[in-house]
Amino acid sequence: MADEFEPNILGILCNWCTYAGADLAGTARTQYPPNVRVIRTMCTGRLDPAFVLKALSLGADGVLVSGCHIGDCHYLAGNFKARRRVALIRKLLEEYGYDRERLRMTFVSASEGALWAEVVQDMVNTIKKLGPNPLKQAGAAGQEGAIADEF
């Protein structure tokens, strides 16, 4: 299939678990699709809803947030808060006319390199099915005022 849509996915990974797990996938040379660009935060609790909305308004096809397993957060409870926030943001996305599956939260520990590769593959599959960010198609991505620029 010529010119198959290749998603651009933003990853927001916590330093202690998923980022380390992704490193481990690298050490083990586990291959996975190259569609994710990672931003490292200390904890998924750092996730501000504005990050997701900004990314999507600028044309990102998907956002993948990943942290420690529930109960294992390096900072005790950051991932609980992130999980709740992600649930709310997903609802909000639907109000904006996005498919909620464009935002996903997963839980990958520092020793789960293979799982990280699966998570990326899964996300890429999902976004491929959903198609490109509707803003990109409408040509509206990146326009000023696409989202409140308070930062």
């Binding site: 931003i39 609790g45 501000d48 990050f51 900072y75 950051g78 926030r85 930062f151």
Partner: peptide
Amino acid sequence: GCGTCGSACPSGAIKMQHFTNEQIMSEIE
């Protein structure tokens, strides 16, 4: 420095050193 408070602050008054909103937003842009 986990950032859970910083991302929740409604006034944007909390600055997470070395992982500020400005820094992360510029990465996203």
